[in-house]
């Protein structure tokens, strides 16, 4: 082989699948309620509330069906700042990915927090949902969460 073969080839590679999937009755209920501007969780036998709701109890596998309405406010329990959003992040300005424990919930929900800058972010900060103007039954019906004092 020629000397040039020592050079290792690299190439861009794009993996793209246009999946559609069924929601099942529980996530379907969650998304349907989001479209109506409401956040719905599900209660486990021990009283803990999971949001987004799950169809089965993660510990016992028991089917869950007791839906619980939750407020659109909560607390950031963890976050990471995205200083340079990429094209597919759907926001061109910096934001944080965060787990948000809604008031009354016992689990964190992954969403994004839009704040003036990273220095505002901290675990324990209060946030409130900013709803999208047009809601279609997707998690993005909540556009983002924002610091509660600025809501």
């Amino acid at each position: 082989m020629s000397e040039s073969s020592a050079e290792i080839l690299t190439a861009p590679y794009r993996l793209k699948y246009s999946y559609k999937r069924t929601t099942g009755p529980v996530i379907g209920r969650f998304l349907t309620d989001l479209r109506d501007g409401k956040i719905t969780g599900v209660r486990r036998p021990d009283g803990a509330v999971m949001v987004p709701p799950r169809e089965y109890d993660p510990e016992t596998g028991e089917a869950l069906s007791e839906f619980v309405s939750l407020p659109d406010t909560g607390v950031v329990t963890g976050w990471t700042w995205v200083a340079e959003p990429r094209q597919l992040h759907a926001m061109s300005t910096p934001f944080a990915f965060a787990t948000i424990q809604l008031d009354g919930a016992h689990t964190g929900m992954l969403h994004r927090v839009v704040a003036p800058d990273e220095s505002v972010m901290r675990s324990g900060m209060r946030v409130r949902a900013r709803w999208a103007a047009e809601r279609v039954g997707m998690i993005t019906d909540i556009e983002c969460f924002v610091p509660e004092e600025s809501a």
Partner: peptide, 18 residues
């Protein structure tokens, strides 16, 4: 009620052939 959602996967890599 919502029964179906679109969940596209779109990943951009730069791969090395080795």
């Amino acid at each position: 009620p919502i029964t179906m959602i679109r969940t596209p996967v779109d990943l951009e890599y730069n791969i090395s052939a080795g």
